[in-house]
Amino acid sequence: MNLMPNIVVLVKRVPDTNARIVVNGDRVDLSAVKWVISPYDEFAIETALQHKEADGGSVTALTLGPAGADKILKDAKAIGVDEIVRLWDDSWSEMDSNATQSALAQAITNIGAEVVYCGKTAADTGAGSTGPGIAERLGWASVSNITDASFGGGLTVTSPVENGSAKISVSGNAVISCDKGNLKVRKPNVKGIMMAKRAQVNVVGADAPASSVTIVSQTPPPAKPAGKKYEGGSSAEEVARLLRDEANVI
């Protein structure tokens, strides 16, 4: 990987993980939730900033979302990214993974990035598709779910494998998705917050193919029938029996 890399970090706006998710009609109603940067994207921001501190270059935070997503870009700016870019077209709604990834890959190409950091999964979709999908579209390497990274001329990441974890060196351009790992994420400081207030969001567009996966409905999770509740540790004997005879799980 080059010195002075052009680094992009993908950030997504999601409901705070404590938010109550209500369904109205056949869609989730997010009108009352508090929005935050998706939790794993905070690790992606931290990793991107550490990469820049080691090798130089610049960090651009990129989100695909409507105007309301400017807030999380400014939050990223307050933490320390250099540039903030929002990708949007008013004709977009309920994009499937193919549309989302195609649009983001174009924006990344236009920014001229050489390395992209993103979250392991977004807190809304839980999918983990975006990072590897974009890498494929760009013809780049990808490593997902990393728990550690080191820089200095080359990029080495740690990611889980059968029986443990592997230290993997990445040559060439790559998309890296970040798990929680051992990083402590930095918090914005006063100067950062002041700078973020004045920061300009660069709004860009791209082409997105029509979605071939369409949302039929969003519903509350199926209610679980009330379980059996016992008092006292001696009831563990009865519970063990039920696990065998009623639940058939042991």
Partner: peptide, 28 residues
């Protein structure tokens, strides 16, 4: 496109958890 973490299939309709299981989504 990709649909992850499917927990139910009904014809070409697929259901997966969203928002960490606080809701379910069915797609066609």
């Amino acid at each position: 496109s990709i649909v992850q973490d499917v927990v139910a299939i009904d014809g070409m309709n697929l259901t997966s958890p969203i928002y960490s299981g606080k809701a379910m989504q069915t797609v066609a």
